[in-house]
């Protein structure tokens, strides 16, 4: 089986979706399928300057060969956004982790989507999905100024289901009039900056929505995750009794196999869970789609078909 090493993508397109919002299209250099994803999912992207950021996928999952993400130019260019806007160009390589989804869509007859600024990105595929399954939905979309609000053209075709509220024209989002009445047939999805999330949380709590009917994702610009090591690291295989060097060209799984470890795998994409391995030492660089955040933080197991190491040395029960 060919094991994926560091999963490299290439920027195949870059365009603008609004003032200060760049849209990137990413693909595999050899055109192979990309990992499957669901609305609300994000990927970890490591840029050539070494920074890792999370971006929500906002393209079409029926296109298995292309990812689309939107990147906001942050004030003072934090979190690699200046680099993406000013330097990154079509043809440049990036590395991929995930996709993972902490903001998954649940089945419902009705949805209310609330977006603040670039928080619109994970909601775009949700809206398409709501359309596809014939659910009722509305979008409440706030931003500073109309010119800075991405994807307004795409959203225009949905007519009066979409309520665009630029702050300089119309003030803050009228949350109370949209969420003021708790409903049992509706799920609210909200993504945006912390103050918007706080306001929505307060509104739904005050009027008595069931807590699980609100699902939020905070849009953060901070760098996340450990930087991918471009340098080799060593992996000690305690059961096999050897230590191997893992270069960027090879996966931990393949390196362990070459060294004679018995390792079962199946998907080799970090989705099926077959290769789960106990970590006895070192800090894994998780690239799978399986573990929840707290399980990642525990650092006691990893999926060596895709995951790597943050530390110079990793000790595995293999």
């Amino acid at each position: 089986m060919d094991s994926t090493a560091v999963d490299r993508l290439v920027v195949t397109g870059k365009s603008s979706a609004a003032e200060g919002v760049a849209v990137l299209e990413l693909a595999r250099p050899d055109g192979r399928r990309l990992p499957d994803w669901t609305p609300g999912a994000h990927i970890d992207v490591t840029l050539a300057n070494g920074e890792t950021r999370q971006y929500s996928l906002c393209g079409d999952r029926w296109d298995a060969h292309r990812y689309r993400v939107a990147v906001l130019r942050e004030v003072d260019g934090r979190g690699g956004s200046a680099y993406v806007h000013d330097e990154l160009a079509a043809g440049d390589p990036v590395t991929l982790g995930g996709p993972r989804n902490n903001f998954a869509m649940v089945p419902s007859a009705r949805y209310v989507f609330v977006a603040g600024g670039i928080g619109i990105t994970p909601l775009l595929p949700m809206i398409r999905q709501a359309e596809r399954v014939g659910a009722e939905w509305t979008l409440l979309y706030g931003g500073r100024r109309r010119a800075s609000m991405a994807f307004l053209d795409d959203l225009a075709r949905y007519g009066d289901r979409v309520h665009v509220v630029p702050q300089d024209e119309a003030g803050l989002l009228p949350l109370a009039s949209w969420l003021g009445e708790p409903r049992t047939d509706t799920v609210v999805y909200c993504c945006g900056p912390a103050p918007l999330l706080a306001a929505v949380e307060q509104t739904v709590a005050t009027v008595g929505w069931a807590p699980h009917r609100l699902r939020t994702e905070r849009f953060t610009a901070t760098e996340v995750g450990a930087p991918v090591r471009d340098a080799p690291f060593t992996v000690e295989l305690t059961r096999t009794g050897t230590t191997v060097t893992v270069t960027p060209q090879i996966s931990v799984l393949a390196a362990a196999r070459d060294a004679g470890a018995t390792t079962l795998s199946s998907c080799e994409k970090g989705t099926c869970g077959t290769c789960e391995t106990t970590v006895l030492g070192g800090v894994p660089d998780h690239r799978d789609s399986i573990l929840a955040d707290h399980e990642r933080a525990a650092g006691d197991c990893m999926f060596p078909c895709v995951s790597r190491s943050c530390t110079d040395r990793l000790v595995l029960d293999l």
Partner: peptide
């Protein structure tokens, strides 16, 4: 033999959720 990658549990989105 390393049987990894066999499709006895399927592969992809529908791969056996009960394999473990």
């Amino acid at each position: 033999r390393d049987p990894s990658g066999h499709v006895g549990f399927g592969m992809g989105l529908h791969q056996c959720v009960g394999q473990h």
